[in-house]
Design a protein around this nucleic acid. Structure first.
Lengths: 219, 219
DNA sequence: TCCAAAATGTGTACAATGTCTACAATCACA
DNA sequence: TGTGATTGTAGACATTGTACACATTTTGGA
């Protein structure tokens, strides 16, 4: 069941690799994509980079450090998906001034993107959001997608839009990201890595809609 | 950082162990309690049971099988906590006929119990609900607590109460467990094993309340 | 320009883990 | 009583993370 390395060892002629850190990270991301965080193995990454196992320690303190870097990268990919979904949800809307409809579309896009990423890339999703971290790091540049925003930042912007549109009273603004996030995250985890695994797509779609409805009402 | 075995090897005099399966399971549960599913290691379990590594294979096909058994046992413990919280939330209420207030207290107890378990026993929580499974097994006897009900059964009963109390229209009854579960599960995962780790208890309390409010409104 | 110090890879080694294939002790029942 | 099924044991192997010493570059002063 062990597949051959995704990236052939790629004979290297120089002593230095050139971008070993990048190569290890890339290999790690691919392993996470295929099997989630547990599938990220240091030695295999060095193998794919065509380098000795210990070379990795020049760039990552230990396996955990590599895993954290993979997690950050995966959050960046999630961000990309979320940005795309938000853009698509907002197509044809005018942003100024922020209307309730606009804000709702935006938040819905965030949730849809988040769950779309979870379903399309379960391994990366688990790597992204199942690795212990702290909220304080949630806006770190390493977690940003191509547009420069991390998933949390994207979510925050959507919640801000709610506030700007006047559909989120100021006294309930604090930490509003967190429970919106909770609702959507839970579905993702249960579906890809828990007891709801194997649920047919239609049911997942239906539950997704209901969860988003719930957030909309409950925010 | 490796603690000495929780249960001393416990010199055995007979060739047979007597209840090796039970001993391995118990050791597994303790390891999961301390470090989540990844901390469940076959050899350590056999060590604590005072037996050769391979003896485990007479009772579990492989590590995954042991882990699944641990997961089931952990769900049983979660069920116990949920039952207790429901009972406490319902104290002094009359169940017949089912009133909206009664149903709401019940569901709230379910959520509170679930999240209380997550916060008090993060390792067991992860072992219980992060191991791939199928909804079809969610009512398996192995997952039941002392009262004979699995977490999913307890949740279902609370949702049934909602329906019986007339606060959940029949057309929305289908799969209603799933998105209530999602909301609560997500908070648990984010807090104990994700980016919300390390959030102060007060914030978690506040978010918990809001999530439960949200479910109440959104169901 | 030269050369020491900092970076970066390599080689060897070790303990731990999951798991395989014999083999041994014990139990259960005909 | 003894024979086959259960349950443990012995030994072995590949894989993993990681420590320590050493080799090869690159680089920034003198």
């Amino acid at each position: 069941m062990t597949a051959e390395p995704a990236h052939p060892p790629l004979q290297r002629t120089t002593y230095r690799h050139g971008d070993l850190r990048g190569a290890l990270l890339l290999a790690g991301v691919e392993m996470a994509r295929a099997g989630g965080p547990d599938a990220v193995v240091l030695r295999e990454a060095t193998r794919q980079a065509g380098v000795t196992p210990n070379a990795a320690y020049r760039h990552f303190a230990d396996r955990g450090a590599l895993l954290r870097a993979v997690s950050d990268a995966a959050q960046g990919l999630a961000a990309d998906r979320m940005e795309a979904e938000v853009a698509s949800a907002l197509a044809g809307s005018h942003a100024d001034p922020v209307t309730p409809d606009f804000a709702r579309r935006m938040l819905r896009g965030v949730g849809t993107g988040y769950l779309g990423f979870a379903r399309d890339e379960p391994g990366l999703f688990r790597a992204a959001f199942s690795v212990p971290d702290h909220l304080a790091n949630s806006a770190a540049p390493a977690k940003a997608g191509a547009a420069g925003r991390s998933p949390f930042m994207i979510l925050s912007a959507a919640v801000d839009a709610y506030a700007a549109a006047g559909i989120l009273p100021p006294e309930r603004r604090a930490n509003a990201e967190l429970f919106a996030w909770s609702a959507v995250h839970g579905l993702g985890m249960l579906v890809i890595d828990g007891p709801l695994r194997g649920l047919d797509a239609a049911t997942v779609d239906a539950v997704t809609t209901r969860v988003l409805d719930m957030v909309e009402r409950g925010l």
